[in-house]
Design a protein around this nucleic acid. Sequence first.
DNA 1: CCCCAAGTGCAGAAGGATCCGCATATTTAC
DNA 2: GTAAATATGCGGATCCTTCTGCACTTGGGG
Lengths: 127, 127
Amino acid sequence: MPQFTAGELEVMQILWEHGAKKPAEIQAVFPREIKNAALRSVLAILLEKGHVTRRQVGKAFVYHAKTRRNGAFRSMIAELADQFCEGSTRTLLFNLVQSEKLSDDDIAELERLAKDTSSSSPKRKKS
Amino acid sequence: MPQFTAGELEVMQILWEHGAKKPAEIQAVFPREIKNAALRSVLAILLEKGHVTRRQVGKAFVYHAKTRRNGAFRSMIAELADQFCEGSTRTLLFNLVQSEKLSDDDIAELERLAKDTSSSSPKRKKS
DNA sequence: CCCCAAGTGCAGAAGGATCCGCATATTTAC
DNA sequence: GTAAATATGCGGATCCTTCTGCACTTGGGG
């Protein structure tokens, strides 16, 4: 039971990037050819799954992403961790660090980001 | 076009963990109830997709994982990176490091792993 | 008021994944 | 040789996603 299918994700990406939109507007900025009705089918599924809400404006429906982009990302990472890393996102992270070829600069950046969000006060920007 | 569906991944996990197996053997260690014929359907799809091979042993077929576990993991990470991190696994890694709450020990471990695989000779075990 | 562009609802086709039952073949035990 | 157990082949049912055509409704300009 994947959170999102490929097509559903395509639509969510639009909503995340552009905010609330009518079907026709989503269609207008869609990265590929898609029929209005096909798009509305996907929206109906997303609505059913609770990933979007909609409200009527005039005669049209405006769709709004309910599930947040980062939340979707996190949960898909968690799914991968379940399948490959005994459910541990931390283990997944370690695996990635091992298999990625990182430059020294990358490592320094990594360290900076890690420390910035781990302990200490999270409201400091940085030095 | 996801590399693997949920069911396909279930089967691959068995093959990765237990090595080459006959359908009935896979069925025996399967983490849930599954009918032999259903399992063979999945194997047929995996065969078609090229993720497994099979060779006849006696009257039975022994299935063998062709796609490697780590390769599958990497490609699924790459897919996620495409959707959420402009195609960059590095960016994905950075995002993860930011959103995970890491202890100082975790960070140290991370650093160790990163340096162990980045520059320097990759054949050294460790100090 | 009338028309039309914009929007929705609906029914269903197509394709893939998942699952199932049954007929058939082959190995093995006796 | 024969029967039981073990496997495969196959046809097809079911479900979900994706896509399509078409009929119907409605808001707004003239």
